[in-house]
Design a protein around this nucleic acid. Structure first.
Lengths: 348, 348
DNA sequence: TTTAGCACTCAGAAACGATGAGTGCTAAAG
DNA sequence: CTTTAGCACTCATCGTTTCTGAGTGCTAAA
């Protein structure tokens, strides 16, 4: 890739910013006047032609101004944006909100989603923390009605799974308690492989429950990610690029179907760019439905054990300068919270 | 209200159906040709004028055909629609899906939402079952790390709440188990009032936990409804009345903010119309944002104990004939499932 | 009570021209 | 070599106008 001159860089910055702000192709004249450049519009035109040639700008039509191309945004984000932190005041309000919320995963997730959508004026996505390999923490059997029993399984990563099942014959709550006590003792802190390798239990009821535990843990392991939360769906409907509502539909569809989640995850795992924040521009080839969109992604949690993902989905013309720091910061806050809450899981 | 002649009723039915189908004002000529009426268009025009006079039809502009008014839809739904059941085949596929899903509330809710949005081609809303007065079923304390303890509370209505707290001093898991055993014994099946009236526990730790239980149960009671699930958000974006995307935004906003949930609930409680299905047309005065929308609502569960709500939000021009039976049927299925699962709660 | 006939209305499409912001290019000036 | 003034050209957008036709209401006859 050819090197840009300083002036070209400066120009590209101005164009991207201006377009992000006003959603309108920016012309040479406007640029000179608005930003008091000590150059004539003709010079700017020459530079813009060069930038277009290099693929950083596009012209919607011959007689219109320039608009950043995908590559233009990408260059802007990777090369031209100085990595700023979120303003301290904002950091404080945000972290304050988290620490005064009730210490529940669900609260944190909805709060994170809300903060991100507010900051970015776009759609926010947050997945609950999820352990790559769930470790058993606790099981409980609660007799419900007759021979029906509710089993509640808690993993060290904080994931809970419940299951109702029927016993062959009626059993006292006492009996259930001794069974769970023994299983809790035997399985504590172990992952699926370790539990299966322990083999069958001698007691018949205990063995039945053990099999259910294995089933549940397998199911938890098979999940690639925790529960998905999102917020700010309506934000993007205000953006001019989504007024035709067909574009918007395609983007929202993708969200509702959740089919892209695995791919997003893969991205956050593979490319671990500086600052831990990934930026995918224009769907980055993977999603045709998101050709108009950008995604800003980050992982949070303790790599290798309990992690989650959070991100923002907005128009390509979104404010990267505001959103990237916000995503980074919230990821940091969630990481801290997760580290506190699942300290046992993280340092086994 | 003036009585309609049979012919007027028949005409109103045709107009409503035609408009729901094609989203276009229907004119006298079209009506005669399309439905092979043995009348001239002039006669139809007279009747349409009468129906307009009575407030059942509207004219978008002088030279356009007629469109049902809110009252028109309302009359159609309450007086003219014969209450049909969902086709047996469809009933079977749906109930089959429920019974082969895993017996978890969450599965049922997402499935219900998915089925409803599919059937109605609109947005579906489902709230998880919620007990008006939660009854204690079980509490569990799980020591996490050092003095941190995770408390898991299960109510008889199937609601689970977790809370993390810190002990003043380190305590063995054994001690925790005896505490929960005693509390489970004492509180089993009791509601908040009953538990508070039992007064303080003598043991200090036990009392602390008891207070946390009360706090959690109060919080559960304060919720008006279970978790909200929805599906099919993108459906309404295809409808012509939402192409301007501003109308769509307002409707979706209302959903995201959840501010209308309580009012919806009130509706399902107050007006318990025939078949248990409520139809709110044009926001019914309560929501300005939904002036273009209709809501079809039903309650499910065991009245007075564990109940939830489900419904469909779509354009006023939605297919009532298809949606109402679907809502009714799914409500029935969920009621059965809830009755099975929470039999103990329902017949105390 | 129904219908043929007729004048009238008016949204929406199509055609048109004017406007003006923007371009690329050339040739002169710095 | 870089910058800029000048100029011809492009073309989306906007407002105007006209045309069309689906649809109406009304009247008078069947």
């Amino acid at each position: 890739m050819q090197e840009l001159t300083d002036r070209q860089k400066k120009l590209l910055i101005l164009i991207v910013r201006d377009y992000i702000d006003l959603a309108q192709p920016v012309g040479s004249q406007r640029l000179v006047e608005q930003y008091k450049l000590d150059l004539s519009s003709a010079t700017i035109r020459n530079e813009m032609a060069a930038l277009t040639e290099m693929g950083f700008l596009r012209q919607p039509h011959t007689s219109a101004g320039r608009v950043p191309s995908e590559d233009g945004y990408r260059y802007f984000v990777t090369q031209l944006m100085h990595q700023v932190e979120l303003p301290a005041a904002l950091q404080h309000t945000i972290s304050h909100q988290f620490y005064q919320a009730r210490p529940e995963i669900e609260q944190w997730m909805t709060l994170a989603a809300s903060v991100l959508s507010q900051q970015s004026q776009a759609i926010s996505l947050v997945t609950a923390p999820h352990a790559d390999k769930a470790r058993f923490k606790h099981v409980e059997l609660i007799s419900t009605q007759g021979r029906q029993v509710l089993m509640v399984l808690v993993t060290m990563g904080g994931e809970i799974s419940q299951q109702v099942f029927s016993l062959a014959e009626s059993v006292t709550q006492e009996r259930l308690s001794t069974v769970t006590a023994r299983l809790n003792q035997a399985y504590s802190g172990r992952n699926l492989d370790e539990i299966t390798s322990l083999g069958a239990r001698t007691d018949s009821l205990e063995n039945d429950v053990s099999l259910l535990i294995i089933e549940d843990m397998r199911r938890i392991n098979e999940r690639l990610t925790g529960q998905l939360y999102f917020d700010g769906l309506t934000n993007i409907l205000t953006e001019p690029e989504f007024t035709d509502s067909d574009e918007a539909r395609r983007a929202l569809r993708l969200l509702e179907e959740r089919s892209m989640l695995p791919d997003l995850l893969a991205h956050t795992i593979l490319h671990h760019s500086a600052g831990g924040v990934q930026v995918l521009i224009g769907g980055e080839g993977d999603w045709d439905e998101l050709r108009q969109c950008s995604i800003i992604l980050a992982r949070y949690g303790a790599p290798g054990s309990v992690t989650g993902m959070l991100g923002v989905l907005g128009p390509m013309r979104m404010s990267y300068a505001r959103t990237i720091p916000a995503v980074r910061y919230v990821a940091g806050v969630l990481s801290d919270l997760v580290a506190d809450t699942f300290a046992d899981q993280i340092t086994p």
